[in-house]
Simulated assay, not measured.
Amino acid sequence: MKIYAICLAKNEVDIIEYCLRYASVWAEKIIVYDNGSTDGTWELVQKLAAENSTIIAWKQDGKPFNNYLRGEAFEAHRHLAQQGDWWCFRLDADELYLQDPRPHLLATLAHYHVVAKESVEYVLTHEDIAEYDFNQLTPVQFDLIRYYMPLYYAEVRFFRHRDRLRWEVGATMPRFMGITSPNLIRVQHYQYRSIPQMKQRVEVRFEARRHGHPNWQKVDERDWRKLLFHRSQACFDKGDNNWHFQGSVNKYLTPWYSYWAKRVLFGLGILP
């Protein structure tokens, strides 16, 4: 079994090296699609690709962000994978995997085609900004980002490769991607890391919303302070890899009737 990863990134110069180096331990290839970075991300990716054959600096394109851009990378590289392989179709630059996902994927029952992540959602707080200097873009100060949200976020990240599976132009995910396993892979998600990075992220997401992206309403006012939390809203990470959650902020599994309908259709080979 091999894992092929797709990383769509824009202005992640402070963290993308960590993401790619960690993922290169378990990924066969990492296809990086730069979405028009202006902070040196693409140049850093090219440098890392020259040093590490696992990383493919595929291309840079500044078209408006949308999730369907990952489909371009998948369709261009789908020939690399074989039956039994997996795609980490969304290797986000700000997500770090705490463990090698290969044992988890190998243990996933055959009738499950999709595996989701369970993320520790780290945040910057008003108290952090007052207490420490977060005015530098690089390097990312992991040791100072110690608060996380009490609810984890679940979202699909892996799917099994099947020769008949296609990612249609304009689709946010492959059609008939499959049935999602209830077992999650944990990641650390560092979405907000410094004041310059948050300012960049607000502008990138504001531009995406201007071109029709349906989410990220928080950036409409173009105020990075709206992304901050208070420590009273979060939990403190003691550094012992023992996070305490109150549950998930979202639902990631389909209803039981949809699950059984898919079991039948996939089992009969009607769906890819």
Rank of each mutant, 00 (worst) to 15 (best):
L144N: 03
L144M: 04
L144I: 08
L144T: 02
I145K: 06
I145A: 01
I145W: 00
R146W: 00
Y147A: 04
Y148V: 06
M149Y: 15
P150R: 02
P150A: 00
P150E: 01
L151T: 07
L151H: 07
L151A: 03
Y152T: 06
Y152S: 01
Y153W: 15
Y153T: 12
Y153G: 11
Y153E: 11
Y153L: 15
A154W: 05
A154T: 03
A154H: 07
E155I: 10
E155N: 14
E155S: 11
V156I: 12
V156L: 13
F158I: 05
F159A: 04
F159M: 10
F159W: 11
R160M: 09
R160K: 15
R160L: 07
R160D: 07
R160E: 11
H161A: 00
H161I: 05
R162A: 09
R162Q: 12
R162D: 00
D163C: 09
D163V: 11
L165S: 00
L165Q: 08
W167S: 06
E168S: 08
V169L: 12
G170W: 08
G170R: 05
G170D: 04
A171W: 06
A171S: 12
T172E: 14
T172C: 12
M173G: 09
M173H: 14
P174K: 02
P174V: 06
R175A: 11
R175L: 13
M177G: 05
G178Q: 09
G178Y: 10
G178P: 03
I179K: 02
I179V: 08
I179Y: 02
I179H: 09
I179E: 03
I179F: 10
I179C: 01
T180L: 11
S181Q: 00
P182E: 09
P182K: 07
N183D: 15
L184Y: 06
L184G: 03
I185Q: 04
R186M: 15
V187S: 03
Q188F: 13
Q188L: 14
H189V: 04
H189Q: 06
Q191N: 10
Y192D: 01
Y192T: 05
